[in-house]
């Protein structure tokens, strides 16, 4: 009975997590409050953890489950906490004047997703990789992260954009090769944790010397 239930529920749980993964990146692109952006990022990572766990249990691969645990600790706890710490320190709560306004970004994201889904559903592409149906979502998330990075002025939002991109790459690996070897994943996680520390300190220093974390002001000479 429970076996049957799990068999029934797993595909829909997978498809729901996939859609929430995509929705969260759209919300990050469409929001301009930094704190809610960090919350959305944490929730997106949680969905990724759920997907990884499903893959791990269905292939009964203990390495994938370990990767999921590490991802949970890092992306759902440490990185959001560190980002929140930086937000509280710099007292910058809002993306005031982005290069592309949030509603326009969301519309561009919509076009992007339609393009990606359209391109990946062509027969040539479907031959290469179609294991979990996560492929097009992952590609879309990578592109959305790139869009967030180039359309925002605040250093913090750009960092979140980078992490969204990384989430997309993670989803891609989960989809195509069912997760990376544990050593590789450890290296990537370490990179991310060190990255959030360095970038946090970097943002604080920018704030100290320029009184703002607007990266467009970095091109002006300070004397």
């Amino acid at each position: 009975m429970t076996n049957l239930l799990i068999k029934e529920l797993t595909p829909s749980l997978l498809s729901y997590s996939t859609v929430i993964l995509l929705l969260m990146s759209i919300l990050i692109a469409g929001s301009n409050r930094l704190q809610s952006i960090v919350k959305f990022y944490a929730f997106q990572s949680l969905c990724l953890v759920v997907i990884t766990l499903i893959v791990g249990f269905s292939t009964s691969n203990s390495e994938t489950i370990r990767i999921a645990t590490i991802t949970f600790i890092g992306k759902c706890l440490i990185i959001p906490l560190a980002l929140n710490f930086v937000i509280n320190k710099t007292q910058v709560h809002k993306e005031v004047d982005p290069i592309i306004s949030p509603p326009t970004t969301v519309l561009i994201v919509c076009i992007l997703i339609a393009l990606v889904y359209g391109l990946t559903s062509t027969p040539n592409f479907a031959k290469i990789a179609y294991s979990l149906g996560l492929f097009d979502t992952a590609i879309s998330i990578i592109l959305i992260g790139l869009l967030i990075m180039i359309s925002r002025r605040k250093a913090l939002t750009q960092i979140v954009g980078l992490y969204v991109m990384e989430n997309g790459i993670f989803a891609l690996t989960v989809d195509t090769v069912f997760g990376m070897p544990f050593v590789v994943e450890m290296g990537i996680s370490l990179d991310l944790f060190i990255g959030v520390l360095i970038m946090g300190i970097w943002v604080l220093r920018i704030k100290q010397s320029f009184d703002s974390i607007d990266v467009s002001k970095l091109s002006k000479l300070k004397g």
């Binding site: 859609v19 929705l23 759209i26 469409g30 509603p103 969301v106 994201v109 919509c110 997703i113 339609a114």
Partner: peptide, 15 residues
């Protein structure tokens, strides 16, 4: 903004 969000949600549903 809210209406654009719901538009994007429905486009996503369509896709």
């Amino acid at each position: 903004d809210i209406l654009v969000a719901s538009f994007v949600i429905s486009v996503l549903a369509l896709i």
